[in-house]
């Protein structure tokens, strides 16, 4: 039973990590901004669904949840870019300044959400600071039609959202001129600009897509977890960054594979440790950190934002 539960958790967490770490890699490739506020998009995606669900009387369909989360997550991301990151890029600041600013944004967004949740809790007399699971009525209908009632709803939700986003991203990047331009900006922005591509507009679009896709993790989360809190992003931040980090913040396929492997290792290991030794789930972060450290020591990922010289020296000295 424990193993079955661990497998289900691994499956859902794989999709959550994929949907949050792929956009992180995408944003770093295109904009070279290491955005510490990235996990807040997950939280905002989850809370948009929660708030609308409460306003509609707990009967929100998945399609509406996905649309709202995508738009709100995308807008939050775009506003962050236009008001903060873009002005910073004009100043030609170092990557450290970007990172610190994104950390500032993270705390602003998080505590604004705390304030909103407290106001809503007073207004609706429901605990928004720790909200219970949301069931999507259209997914329930789909389960009834297909006879999948024995399956937990969150597995179907995760599959629907994950596969749709995966296919959409594949088509965007491989079959459209827009995707080609986005990849071009990631590789050499100046060259793309010379070719007449409107870089600013495409960078804005990238930020919108990044925020929107990440917010979809929140839509899965509220269907899966029994308690959603404004700290949601903070709890996922390490796994999210670790997956992107293993992909070297460059390779989308490696990031996706890393997300699946991370989710599998941490959930299975946690289940085993909990069953045999009574270890608490709080060690989850230590497991992820162990994996990251092992990778750092054994083989730092390619393109790891400046890690090349030391590896280069090592290779030269060996020769």
């Amino acid at each position: 039973m424990e193993i079955y539960r661990a497998i289900l958790c691994s499956y859902v967490f794989s999709w959550i990590y994929i949907l949050s770490s792929l956009p992180l890699t995408l944003s770093y490739r295109t904009t070279k901004v290491f955005n510490f506020a990235h996990p807040i998009f997950i939280t905002y995606g989850a809370y948009v669904v929660i708030i609308v669900n409460e306003v509609l009387g707990r009967e929100i369909p998945l399609a509406v949840a996905v649309f709202l989360a995508f738009v709100v997550g995308g807008l939050v991301s775009l506003i962050s870019h236009l008001l903060v990151f873009k002005p910073l890029s004009y100043q030609r600041v170092s990557s450290n300044v970007y990172m610190v600013t994104s950390m500032g944004l993270w705390f602003i967004y998080q505590y604004v959400l705390y304030i909103v949740c407290q106001l809503l809790t007073r207004r609706y007399d429901v605990n928004f600071l720790s909200y219970s699971t949301i069931e999507y009525k259209d997914v329930r209908f789909l389960q009834d039609v297909l006879g999948l009632n024995s399956m937990p709803q969150y597995t179907i939700t995760a599959t629907l959202i994950g596969v749709s986003v995966g296919v959409a991203l594949y088509i965007l990047f491989n079959k459209t001129v827009l995707g080609l331009s986005l990849r071009g900006i990631a590789d050499n922005a100046s060259l793309v600009a010379i070719c007449g591509v409107p870089i600013n507009r495409l960078v804005n679009l990238t930020w919108f897509l990044v925020g929107g896709i990440t917010a979809l993790s929140g839509v899965i989360w509220v269907n899966f977890s029994g308690s959603t809190t404004p700290d949601l992003g903070l709890n996922i931040v390490v796994d999210n960054f670790a997956a992107a980090f293993i992909g070297g913040l460059y390779s989308l396929p490696i990031t996706a594979v890393a997300s699946i492997v991370l989710a599998l290792i941490e959930n299975m290991l946690l289940a085993v440790l909990n069953y045999y030794f009574g270890v608490q789930p709080t060690v989850r972060i230590a497991i992820v950190f162990g994996i990251v450290l092992a990778i750092l020591v054994a083989r730092p990922p390619m393109g790891a934002g400046g890690g090349l010289p030391y590896r280069f020296i090592k290779r030269v000295s060996r020769k």
Binding site: V237, L249, V292, Y310
Partner: peptide, 13 residues
């Protein structure tokens, strides 16, 4: 061995 973003992330962890 890695760039500033990773240093920041690792130490945060």
């Amino acid at each position: 061995r890695v760039g500033s973003g990773f240093v920041g992330f690792t130490l945060l962890c």
